[in-house]
Amino acid sequence: MAKLVGGICTSHIPAIGNAIARGLEDDPYWQPFFAGYPPVREWLERVQPDVAVIVYNDHGLNFFLDNLPTFAIGAAPEYQNADEGWGCPRSRPTRAIRRFPST
C-alpha cells in the first residue's frame, strides 16, 4: 500500500519562469516568493519520496481548444519544459522530469 508523505503546491504563473530564466530570484519583488522554495527542497531531501505525482496546467502548449481533455496522463519516459511562447530556456537534461519505466 502506498504511503502519501505529503503534498507540495506552487503558483505557476509564467512570470515565475521568466524570473528564474533572468536570475531575478533575489530581486526585492521576487525574493519573498522564492524564499518559499528552499525549505521545500530541504523537505524533499529529507523525505526522499519514491514517486512524485506532478499535476500541472498545460498552459496552451500541448492542447488547443479543438482537442482539449479535462485531464491527460503523460506516459513518456522523460519530459522537458516548453518554450511557452516567449523563449523560455529549456532546462538542462539532468533536471528533466523522468518517469519510472516500470509501473
Partner: peptide, 18 residues
Amino acid sequence: GNVYYLAKFTGIFKLGVQ
C-alpha cells in the same frame, strides 16, 4: 482571445501576463 494563447502573442513583444 483567451489569455493562455494571448500570452504567447504578447510574449513576442517581451510582455508578460502581468
